[in-house]
Design a protein around this nucleic acid. Sequence first.
DNA 1: GTCTATATGTCGATAGAC
DNA 2: GTCTATCGACATATAGAC
Lengths: 188, 188
Amino acid sequence: MNTRDKILATAKNLILKVGYNAFSFSDISVPLGIKNAAIHYHFPGKEALGCAVIRKEHENVIKWKNEVDKLDPWQKLERFFRVYDKNMVHNRICMVGSISSDLYAVPESMRDCLHAMVVDINQWLTELLEEGRRLGTFQFHGPAEGKAAVVVTSLAAGLQIARVLGSDKFEQIKNQIKLDITPTKDDN
Amino acid sequence: MNTRDKILATAKNLILKVGYNAFSFSDISVPLGIKNAAIHYHFPGKEALGCAVIRKEHENVIKWKNEVDKLDPWQKLERFFRVYDKNMVHNRICMVGSISSDLYAVPESMRDCLHAMVVDINQWLTELLEEGRRLGTFQFHGPAEGKAAVVVTSLAAGLQIARVLGSDKFEQIKNQIKLDITPTKDDN
DNA sequence: GTCTATATGTCGATAGAC
DNA sequence: GTCTATCGACATATAGAC
C-alpha cells in the first residue's frame, strides 16, 4: 500500500470516527510516520483529501454492488448490514451520516461528492426492496422508495445512537428492520 | 430574554446546523452584538456552554412530554414528528444526531449529558408504541424497544439525509413510519 | 517523495479597565 | 456585566533543501 492510499485509509477512518472538521493533518501524519508536508504533496489541501475519501468510498460502493449482484434479497440485505457492522465494531459511523450531519461545515465540493454517493445507495436499496416484494420474500406497505429511506436511515443513525446506548441497540435495530419486512402468512 | 438565554439559543441553533466543533464564539457574539468575553462571563468555557445547551434541550424534552401526556397515541406521534419538522425547515438536524455523530470529538461531560437525554427519549417512545399496540391503534412485530429505535433513528438520520436529498425525503420517511405501524384488518 | 522551517490565520481563554 | 487587549495553542498551507 503506497503512501497515498495509506493517507486515504487513515483519513477515512478519522472522518467516520471524529468527523471531517475534528481531525487534523497530524492525526494522519503521526501514525503513518510521515510529516504534514507529505500529505500536501499527495493532496493539495484538506478539501481535496476529503473529496478523494468520499469518491473512493463511492467507488467501493459500486464495486460492492457488483459483488452482491447475484445474491437473493435476504442475502443482499444481510451483506448490506455487514457493511454497517464493520463500522459498528470500531465505533465508527457511516460516511453518509458523518458528512451529512456536518454538511454545512464542510466544503461544497464534498457535499457534491456525497450527493452522488447517497443517490446511488438509495437507488440500490430501493430496487432491492422492490425486487424482494415482487418475489414475495419481503413484505411491506407503501412505495419501496420510502421503505428504503427508513431502512438506510435506521442503520445510519443506528450507528450513531449505538455510541451512546451500546451496540445492543444496533442489533435491536437490525432485527426490527428484518421483522418489518418479513412476510406474514395472512397479510394482503 | 436575557443575554445568557440568547447565548444558549444561538449556540443550540449552531450545534444543530454546523455541529459543536464547527462553531466559534464569534458565531455567537457577532449576531448578538456582544463580545466573546461576554460569553465567558456566562459560561466558563465552550465545554460548559455545550453541556448547558444539551441540558436545556433535555429539560425541554421533559416539559414537552408532560404537554402531550393526555393525547392519544397517533396524536402523540404526530406531535413527535412536529419536533423534527421544526428543525427540518431550517436545515437543522436533531440534538441527538448532531452530538452523537461527533461524539468522539466532544468533551466527555457532553457525552454524559446526551446519554441522559437519549435514554429519556427512547423510553418515552417505547412506552408510546407499547401503549398504542395494546390499544390496537398501532400494529407491529417484535419488542416495542426495537421499534422505537427504528422510528427515532429514521427521524434523526432522516433530517441528515434530507440535507442531501431534499425535504421530500423526510416526508417520505414520516409517511413510511406511519404505514409501518398502521394496523391491517387481518394481521395476527 | 519526503523533509525542515516557517508563514498565516483562527480559536478558546484570561487579565484588568469601566 | 460587558468591554479592550492580548496570550498561547493549534490548524492549514507553503517554500525550499535533500
